[in-house]
Amino acid sequence: MSTPLFSSPFTLGILGGGQLGKMMLYTTRKWDIATYVMDKDDTAPAFEGCTVFFEGDIMDYQAVMEFGEQVDVLTIEIENVNVQALQDLEDKGIAVSPSARVLNLIRNKAVQKQFYLDNNIPTAPFQIHATPELNHGKNYPFIWKSAEGGYDGKGVKVIRQESDLADLPQVECIYEDMIDFELELAVIVARNASGEMKTYPVVEMEFHPEANQVEYVICPARIDDTVSQKAREIALQVSAAYDHVGLLAVEMFLTKNGDILVNEVAPRPHNSGHYSIEGSVTDQFEQHIRCVLDLPLGNTDSTVAAVMVNLVGEEGHTGNVIYDGIEEILAMPGVTPHIYGKKQTRPFRKMGHVTVVDKDVAVAREIAAQVKERIRVVTEE
């Protein structure tokens, strides 16, 4: 007989209390699984949905050790955690997914890029530097990326001339060829501890030109079946190389000549999978819980075409949040807003998302554009 998980003393721990943690709790509450969450901010989105909330820094070794020793299985909602503590918890026999080994291969982008090279995974040509070098020998323009700490468009810059390197932080970084791509795609791979694997359909991502954040995620991607199959096969190749447990979101470029290059990965639920709450048989958050608890994987098929719109703070607005226009979008067909519960907004901060579903992906994308125009994340006057 398997270990009792439901309505039992079993406890799942989640490091990080942001919106991804909050949305994981949709499943644990549905299944009556006891869930502990740790975050340094007691106003974090996941605060109200967990069984017990622990206030603590997930980068602090002792805090993570003390938290991890109280749970049966430990997972994350963000990669910036104390990985040494995770390794020591694994050595004590606590199941940690994704493992410390996988996080060490992914959280540093320079290590991640070298991993692709070592495992014959197609990726853009790159150089690794200890600090930004003026005498780099790379043709302009190219992409500078901080090796650690970058997220939501931070830690990434287009270098068009030598002077663009002058004010960059003096940290380990990557110089990457600028790819002349047709589309940016993503595939989420689910893998449980027993080795069962499934992929979600390929999605297409449209980015904000200034913030370098995803504005729209479109499922299914507007590509032909041959490209879709190739993208899913490469995602499975990446997943097999990492030998991870949980979700792995694989972001890719589709080049103008039809090649697919892996950009980067995230070992957790991901922005590119938010559409699945309304658009899939099994949403990505439930799937992640299934993976880390070694339960059978759910069906990854789409039930309807879906487009996700990110809701981010408007420029010029910092303070108590107001969702101006939310009543208007609620009256639109196929529209479901998700508000993350962050009380304070600031420019480009992720505050929520909206899913638009329709039997026709073109119609869903058109409505998504209307949603983008009608709702604004602002502050009180």
Results as ranks from 00 to 15, higher is better:
residue 4 P to A: 11
residue 5 L to Q: 14
residue 20 L to D: 02
residue 26 Y to F: 08
residue 32 D to L: 12
residue 33 I to R: 01
residue 35 T to S: 09
residue 41 D to M: 11
residue 43 T to N: 14
residue 47 F to N: 12
residue 56 G to P: 09
residue 58 I to H: 04
residue 59 M to Q: 12
residue 60 D to P: 04
residue 60 D to V: 06
residue 70 Q to L: 11
residue 73 V to M: 10
residue 75 T to H: 05
residue 78 I to E: 02
residue 82 N to A: 11
residue 83 V to W: 05
residue 86 L to D: 05
residue 87 Q to H: 15
residue 90 E to L: 09
residue 101 R to V: 14
residue 102 V to G: 06
residue 104 N to Y: 04
residue 109 K to N: 09
residue 111 V to M: 08
residue 112 Q to I: 06
residue 116 Y to A: 00
residue 116 Y to N: 04
residue 127 Q to H: 13
residue 136 H to L: 12
residue 137 G to A: 12
residue 137 G to V: 13
residue 142 F to H: 07
residue 145 K to C: 09
residue 149 G to H: 06
residue 151 Y to C: 13
residue 156 V to K: 08
residue 157 K to T: 10
residue 160 R to G: 15
residue 161 Q to F: 10
residue 164 D to W: 15
residue 167 D to V: 03
residue 168 L to Y: 02
residue 172 E to C: 14
residue 176 E to I: 10
residue 177 D to I: 07
residue 178 M to S: 10
residue 184 E to I: 02
residue 185 L to C: 11
residue 187 V to I: 14
residue 188 I to G: 08
residue 189 V to P: 03
residue 194 S to D: 12
residue 195 G to W: 13
residue 195 G to Q: 08
residue 200 Y to V: 05
residue 219 C to G: 07
residue 219 C to V: 08
residue 228 S to Y: 01
residue 229 Q to D: 13
residue 230 K to S: 12
residue 237 Q to C: 06
residue 240 A to L: 07
residue 242 Y to W: 02
residue 245 V to I: 14
residue 248 L to Q: 03
residue 248 L to A: 05
residue 254 L to K: 00
residue 255 T to G: 03
residue 257 N to M: 02
residue 259 D to A: 11
residue 261 L to E: 10
residue 262 V to E: 03
residue 262 V to Q: 00
residue 265 V to K: 00
residue 265 V to N: 02
residue 269 P to E: 11
residue 269 P to A: 12
residue 271 N to E: 04
residue 273 G to P: 00
residue 274 H to M: 04
residue 276 S to I: 10
residue 284 Q to H: 05
residue 285 F to T: 12
residue 286 E to F: 05
residue 287 Q to A: 07
residue 298 G to H: 07
residue 300 T to L: 08
residue 300 T to A: 11
residue 303 T to M: 15
residue 313 G to H: 05
residue 313 G to P: 07
residue 318 T to E: 15
residue 325 G to I: 12
residue 325 G to D: 10
residue 332 M to E: 12
residue 334 G to R: 02
residue 334 G to V: 02
residue 338 H to P: 02
residue 339 I to W: 00
residue 342 K to N: 01
residue 343 K to I: 15
residue 344 Q to A: 06
residue 346 R to E: 14
residue 347 P to H: 11
residue 354 V to L: 04
residue 357 V to K: 00
residue 362 A to F: 04
residue 362 A to R: 13
residue 363 V to N: 11
residue 363 V to H: 07
residue 364 A to R: 00
residue 366 E to Y: 08
residue 368 A to V: 00
residue 369 A to P: 00
residue 377 V to Y: 00
residue 377 V to K: 01
residue 378 V to S: 05
